[in-house]
Design a protein around this nucleic acid. Sequence first.
DNA 1: TAAAAAACATACTAATTAGTATGTTTTTTG
DNA 2: CAAAAAACATACTAATTAGTATGTTTTTTA
Lengths: 196, 196
Amino acid sequence: MKKAAITRLNILQKAFELIYEKGYLTTSIDEILATTAVTKGAFYYHFKNKDEMGIAIINELLKPSFENTFLKPLTSGGDSIQTIYDMMYEILMDNEILKVEYGCPASNLTQEMAPWNAEFTKALNDLSSEWKEAIINCIENGKKTRNIRSDVKADQVAIFIMSGYWGIRNIGKLNNSKSVYLVYLKQLKDYLESLR
Amino acid sequence: MKKAAITRLNILQKAFELIYEKGYLTTSIDEILATTAVTKGAFYYHFKNKDEMGIAIINELLKPSFENTFLKPLTSGGDSIQTIYDMMYEILMDNEILKVEYGCPASNLTQEMAPWNAEFTKALNDLSSEWKEAIINCIENGKKTRNIRSDVKADQVAIFIMSGYWGIRNIGKLNNSKSVYLVYLKQLKDYLESLR
DNA sequence: TAAAAAACATACTAATTAGTATGTTTTTTG
DNA sequence: CAAAAAACATACTAATTAGTATGTTTTTTA
């Protein structure tokens, strides 16, 4: 990788960590510069302004990592009910980047930025749509292989599952403990089984 | 009401509106003063600092309104499944204070303030706990009247329902449309019926 | 009704903020 | 290797922030 690309990636990564921990609007550029040992001149060479950096974090960092952990597991084949449950278990319990006390990065940004910048909302909506489509596909697959009832409305279930995920992230943040994740996962399992 | 109490309530109400729309940390005291026509001297007479006002908003405004719309409907008696569904429908579709584009005030504050002030988290956790208990009671009632299966784990279901609510608020914010609420409610209905 | 306390008003401060102006250094290219 | 472009560095600005210092006015109380 070229040196300039390293600088840019370094800014994005450190900025993401700070933003994930304490929010976008309350993470100052000076703070990002301090933890990266990058100067302001370099920062504004790579990004027109703070929001451009924010969008870059979503598209260049969040998106690829999201596709790996949220989407890829859904294409494994096998039993659809189990596949969806496993994906959720991995995301909530095993993922090393996502921390219960910080919630979901995409959810945090949605909450915080919706009133301020429509570009953020649009970029985050893309992620959300991708996930929804992947869940729908997985369910439709399950219907084909007779693991899921044919009368199940895939899009309806997809939205229900996604809302559960985002909500439990919020409850986790409130309780600062993964134990609510386990309670949620148990009920998710029961719910998913009711779709067979 | 005494005049001083009116001033205080006025600050809390206008501050709540601004905070609900654009966040706590990004709502400045000067902005609150501008929309209330209250001066800084008056503000700091009533509140030691900004955070004390924030906590007062939760305890003196959010809590009572929350108890009316989230808790009271759950004690109506009648069919528990229907009672829970009706509460959720009312909150999402009919409530005049809660707006789809702004999300849930309690959820917003949880997301935003968890990294900054544990007092906020504690106060919000109290609301969350109250709701959870009310849902659990409602389910246990349903079990007694044979409307809900005896093997249903009330606390598990309560957390599952709450997470769904918080999540769909987030998705609503992302889509800026109540239509996802209706999709969610349909699936919630199916899910609740599976508990009979 | 006069003294005391409560309630409010104004002008300030020190810190922090995103962003800019104007440089210098490093890398690439012909 | 020299010119040009890319990449970075430093010092600044104007606006905004929470909070304070020091008052005045209004209300309550003895």
